[in-house]
Amino acid sequence: MRYRLNRLAPQLALAPAAIIALVAFIGAIAWTVYVSFTRSRRLPESAIDFSRPFRQYDRLFQDNAWSISLTNLIVLALGSALAIVFGFILAAMIERERRGEDFFRTVFLYPLAVSLIVTGVAWRWIFNPDLGLQNFMHGLGFTGVHFNWLAEGETAMYAVIIASVWQSSGFYLALMLAGLKGINEEIWNAARLDGVSLVRVYIEIIIPMMKFTFLTCAILLSLGVIKAYDIIVAMTNGGPGQSTWVPAYFTINAMTQRGNLGYASAAATMMLLITLAVFLPLVLLTAWQQRLARKAAA
């Protein structure tokens, strides 16, 4: 009896967490998907209109704001990928030059300690023509310089990308630095003896060896981009017009401003599908690469 209880103890300890996850996470997802097929407005309705169960999705795909949100999501994803590139470059520079490593690592990691709201507000000041970079450059005599990017729909999204890259580069630096630390020092010594240039060593040896680190960064980046909301609100609040709307902002706006729960649930469901479409291939690719690595090691 005591042996059976000892075997069941881990399951019993994890049972509350499993129940909470089942109810609060999976249950909430299922409820959201269900509501997306109803005609819910400010209050949820339990009945599905089977004559037009996809009415919310039909409206969603015909909404120009949703198309803008998807386009901005792609732009934000491509631009934010620069954070991984900068993180790797900074990590390579710090790892090769050991002096001052702790200092520079702390400096580059500092933006990560700042919330996205604070980051957005700070960069909104920087792009403010009366207070920020433009005013500073004009004070130096460069009156032809203009950095009022947040006031123009064509450049506002790029300003958001710059703030996002600044905030997240330190995080990817830490991941890349951990990956570089795991590379055997003999590889560097052998490359140095063979006279291989440092650039070739990184491109042909180091980067392929760090493929799991890059895949991990890509997974984390994709999840962060899809749920991007805080920095949009802090910097532009979706403006000018709808030029910086993203799916998360569209969903919250549909719920709070339009007061349409069914419509917001349809947008949230599409966000879930986008997440799965991006996340699952990366996870499967990582698992496949790990399996190949284990077979090669065996």
Rank of each mutant, 00 (worst) to 15 (best):
M176H: 06
S51F: 14
G170E: 00
L78R: 00
A83M: 02
T286Q: 13
L282A: 07
V225I: 13
Q242C: 04
D63K: 04
M93T: 05
T216D: 01
Y172G: 00
Q257C: 07
P44W: 12
F214P: 15
F108I: 04
A277K: 04
Q242E: 08
S243I: 07
G139Y: 08
D58C: 07
T119S: 12
G262Q: 04
L285Y: 11
A30Q: 05
A122Q: 09
P247W: 15
L12C: 04
L22P: 01
K211C: 06
Q257M: 12
P53V: 07
L280S: 05
I232V: 13
I48G: 10
A21E: 00
R2I: 10
G182Q: 12
W188D: 12
L12Q: 01
A18E: 00
V107S: 02
R41M: 10
L285N: 06
T236L: 05
R2V: 11
W188N: 14
V145I: 14
M157Y: 12
A277Y: 03
D49C: 09
T216Q: 03
L175T: 00
A77V: 01
F147N: 09
I117H: 06
V196M: 11
R59P: 00
A266F: 06
W149Q: 05
V35A: 06
F212K: 07
V121P: 03
N260Q: 14
Y110V: 12
L133R: 07
I232K: 03
D130T: 13
K227W: 07
A65D: 08
K295W: 15
S243D: 08
F50N: 06
Q289I: 11
I84V: 10
A21M: 06
Q290R: 14
F171C: 02
A83D: 00
I187Y: 15
I203M: 08
A9N: 02
V23N: 02
L82G: 09
L78G: 03
R258H: 12
A65T: 09
F25L: 09
R294L: 14
V107M: 07
L70H: 02
G144L: 11
I68V: 14
A91W: 03
A297I: 09
A298W: 11
A24W: 14
V283E: 04
I68D: 07
M255E: 09
E95P: 04
Q62F: 11
S197R: 14
T71A: 06
I205H: 12
A91M: 03
L109M: 09
A293V: 13
K295M: 10
D102V: 06
A190H: 03
L150C: 08
M235W: 05
A277C: 10
A293F: 15
V114A: 02
F104C: 04
A92W: 12
A13C: 06
V75Q: 05
G120Y: 02
D194Q: 11
